[in-house]
Nucleic acid binder design. Sequence first.
RNA 1: GGCGCUAUCGUCAAGUGGUUAAGACACCGCCCUUUCACGGCGGGUUCGUGGGUUCAAAUCCCGCUAGCGUCACCA
Length: 484
Amino acid sequence: MKKIRTRFAPSPTGYMHIGNLRTALYAYLFAKSQHGDFILRIEDTDRARYVADAVEFIEKTLAAAKIIPDEGPHHGGEFGPYVQSERMEIYKKYAEQLVESGHAYRCFCVNDEPENNSDDKKFGGYNRHCRDLPAAEIEKNLAEGKPYVIRQKMPLTGETTFFDVLHGNITIANSELEDQVLLKSDGMPTYNFANVVDDHLMEISHIIRGTEFITSTPKHVLLYKFFGWELPTFIHLAPVMGKSPDGTVSKLSKRHGATSFNDLIEAGYLPEVITNYVALLGWNPKTNQEIFSMNELIEKFNLEGLSKSPAVFDYDKLDWMSGEYFKAMTDENFAEAADKFFGALDENLSAKKVYLSSLLKTRVNRLSQIPDTIKFLQVMPPLDAELFINKRNKVTVEKSIEIITPALKILEGVENWTVDALNEKIFAFVEESGLKMGTVMWPLRIALSGQKVTPGGVTEILFLLGREESFRRLNSALEFLKKS
RNA sequence: GGCGCUAUCGUCAAGUGGUUAAGACACCGCCCUUUCACGGCGGGUUCGUGGGUUCAAAUCCCGCUAGCGUCACCA
């Protein structure tokens, strides 16, 4: 059996859309699950869209996502070069071959010459003016040095059918196919030509790409036929959609929020969370497992689980999955991953990063939520008497004063400012007071944090704040309450 | 508009002629609780529509509708 070889062939735009990342992931997973090769090929045949350093950007992004090419611009391989702009002579040679065999022809029409374009869009806007140009005229044009493109000579009748793993047989009438440009006047191939030549030369066995290529596939199939090449297996993936606030669904784009791998990293999602989530957006393992490491993904991936209908990117589910990863991390690993999101911490908090991480990792879904979550530890938010009033725990402003006052005394007696010691003292205090735990804790939390919700309980907050700052806040809260 | 693809809860989805139509996220309710989180329990007219085929259809066929894609010297 032939070796399985898949490829990811992005154009170097300097942006890794989630949809593209998923295509790369599936191509990678399929190749690896079959002990095959995954190739990275850069399709930079559009000079106008060239972006500096985009190749490096793509390689870095794939590396971050743990999608490792076996061959590519900087990964070596026997089938290079892997950048299309470096393969121009190859395309030229094959295009000429097609002209000789009568399956392509030179077209001297100027791009926007109106008489050569039909309004009815019948042939994609081109009226096949040069399709049967007399040999003498071609010679004359060539001699004059007229620029030209090479166009594919489509059959006028009949139909072309190809097999797609997901969609089965797809048939399109040849009359629908335009005489597309194979080689541009600047000598660069078009996508439709280059990808066929390269996929064949690079021995790609399975072409995994988006559905937007379904309608151009018959043109590619015809090219394989003209060359007498064996057809690869096609797998056209459904697109990744985004949901707008108004409820409508369309192809995932910027207006839906973060849509590139990098956007998501900046939003504080772990790379492995992104690949895990994206893998499940359009592929189903047929079990109830949802958390997968890359190795498990490789092990379990199969084409049968691929879905042929579009999937909507769901940020809520991404958040959930992200939280699951955090909970499974050690405090140390979390602290490390979260490091740049902590911002500038004072000496006290800086020393307690790992402890802080133990509290944070169960309550945060995105690392970018960290700054807001821990801000109160660094700057005491303004108090509001309303905050102290809590019906459920039967707490009022007066009650708060009655609790904080003796609590301060108790805390003064704490020698080791540790969570355990603080717990011991406070629990004892609660018991003596005859009050409910919640009744005692509520006003203390508010006094210490100015928030109803905090990452951790009162004793954890006391510990994080440190002795000095805790007393400062408790005392000033007491003063505040007495004035209210 | 032509051509093509798609259609199961709000979302991801299982399902391949006979199921009480899984599971997850989100949502709602209840419980637990030191707030939040975590955890536990419970909840919801989900097979776009109209015709067939069949003893039996979410599953097969046809039409319709809707969404998406494509019709470049972009990929």
